[in-house]
Design a binder for these strands. Sequence first.
DNA 1: CGAGAAAATGTAACCGATTACATTTTTTTT
DNA 2: AAAAAAAATGTAATCGGTTACATTTTCTCG
Lengths: 345, 345
Amino acid sequence: MSTEKEVTIYDLARKLNISIATVSRALKDDPVVSKKTKKKIADLALELGYRSNNFARNLRTSRTNTIGVIIPRINSSFMSSVIAGMENVANSEGYNLIISQSSESAEKERVNAATLFNSRVDGLLVSLAYDTDSLAHFEPFTKKKIPLIFFDRTADKTEGTCIQIDNLRAAYEATTHLISQGNTRIVHITATPKRNVYIDRLQGYQQALADQRIAFREDYVIVGNLSQEAGADAAARIMEMKPLPDAVFVANDNCAVGCMTALKQAGIRIPADIAFAGFNNDPVSTVIEPNLTTVNYPGYEMGQIAARSLIDHLNGASSIHSTNTIILRSELIVRESSIRRKTNP
Amino acid sequence: MSTEKEVTIYDLARKLNISIATVSRALKDDPVVSKKTKKKIADLALELGYRSNNFARNLRTSRTNTIGVIIPRINSSFMSSVIAGMENVANSEGYNLIISQSSESAEKERVNAATLFNSRVDGLLVSLAYDTDSLAHFEPFTKKKIPLIFFDRTADKTEGTCIQIDNLRAAYEATTHLISQGNTRIVHITATPKRNVYIDRLQGYQQALADQRIAFREDYVIVGNLSQEAGADAAARIMEMKPLPDAVFVANDNCAVGCMTALKQAGIRIPADIAFAGFNNDPVSTVIEPNLTTVNYPGYEMGQIAARSLIDHLNGASSIHSTNTIILRSELIVRESSIRRKTNP
DNA sequence: CGAGAAAATGTAACCGATTACATTTTTTTT
DNA sequence: AAAAAAAATGTAATCGGTTACATTTTCTCG
């Protein structure tokens, strides 16, 4: 009835008439304790429903077995895969995850970092918000040598390890593909060039144009927040362009969908009038009609690798400084939205 | 250079030549400490970069300020809204969230519950997995009087509070709407009747049929896992039915989309040949063509309310037992997928 | 068999806060 | 101005583990 008292190592020690030190060691499977004693202790612990008190341990060892995660938003298919991958590894290694969202705000990111710092996470996994300029809020971590890993939206000139894809190459391939379909007036919709992912994709786009001797036009780059609404806004701008562009490369599927929908409503045919390519291989890319050509990259794996790297480092298995950037593979998935058949009239 | 030593209340006390008790009280803003002293302490704490040691506090108070969350999957728009809502409240109240996914497996749910129990969360927020039968894995919580709140996929016959919508009524409305458009052969695609949400929706569907004097047909209920693939499978079964059903009510938008896509590929027109209604108001519902009629319900708010209820209870502000079930409003959003114009040939 | 090495166990300080209870200081009252 | 009440501060035990160092027990081998 009443909340039973929690069982401690003192209780175990008393019952078995041994010292708490031995109990503590036995529970940690310390080789210095004899098998026989260990067995006795393990049995009794089970019987009494003993559970270790992490606070006492953490207080003593100053480790929390907790990893902090800061992400812009959890509500994309990509991010939830990443989280799932992290959880998978963390769980199996006995770590907990504390996930916090910056909602794309540098200020909220700062607050989250402070909170996680105060909860003394053992390490931090971060994907940066759109408008983060300074990395000063991560200094407390680096100062205290708390390992810090950036993934996807990474930061240059930092000490932390970065896990990402080759955004430049992926964008280069997507753009080259659009060009190969006979397009030359290619618009690029993207987000703030503060973030590596967007600046790299822009460069890939530019480089592909350059390699095919197509002049880069400043006014073909539309910067927004990559939401569906931003896609619709971009569509309005595109429709004002004369001549009409013949292809659009969007840095994110969700925004591409918003843009395509708006164009379709205005009677523009895709891909006949304008071809499309996106980025992320979000599930909507196979729902929109026509299905969207896009860049697929492994979120789940990225999450796993990020967590794995961090934990390995925490366990001293590998130094985080030995590997500074991990590049994962990505691939272009060609679907109807970019396939030119007979060419348009 | 070297990792600086952590500042403790002992350091503050020594510097100011006062006792640690006063420091401790001042930091908690205990009214018993004079303003002057508080100011001195706060200033020094700031200057020295003091941060409270939660382990010491938790060890002493046996509270963790951490809330455990168990959900089937995070990768739906609905769930990520829920999480965002929880985070919003938890953050502002100084609680951390530990999120774990059951991946729709009762076994994994059990393991997650055990893990969270061992990390001594102050409370638990749960949405049940598809195949969870027994609630035995939550007994340790109830035994220790750790509050437990179910949301969305709730459990009957339990002591915990439940937060959900009126699934029966929502499904009744959706079905009635389909009937009002002139449909009578209405298929229902859903998931395991183990979960309240699905059994309630099925009952709403049945009740609507009954009220309109349409006979319920067992073979019109297709049970699956509500994935897009399950939707495609259901489409195959639907196409074998003679005569062809004239409407489909799906317990989840994502599955509806899979089903619609498969039917469209087979040349069936929506809504002309078959009308559709879904559930959840997932973003894809406005991407699929035709846009999907669906039931909207407030994920963000549900998350907020769940977290708020739990925290209020933890703070002793309200007893969890006073309110046993909280019902949130939901609404039918009618879109093209269910609108019959001239009627089919 | 007995000395020394190895294995097993024990002692006690420590991690950094909270808080019941005791004591001192300040304010109010008469 | 002294007594009583109120406010502020201090003392010390406590939460439940970890671990350096000390001690005891068991084993090994000449």
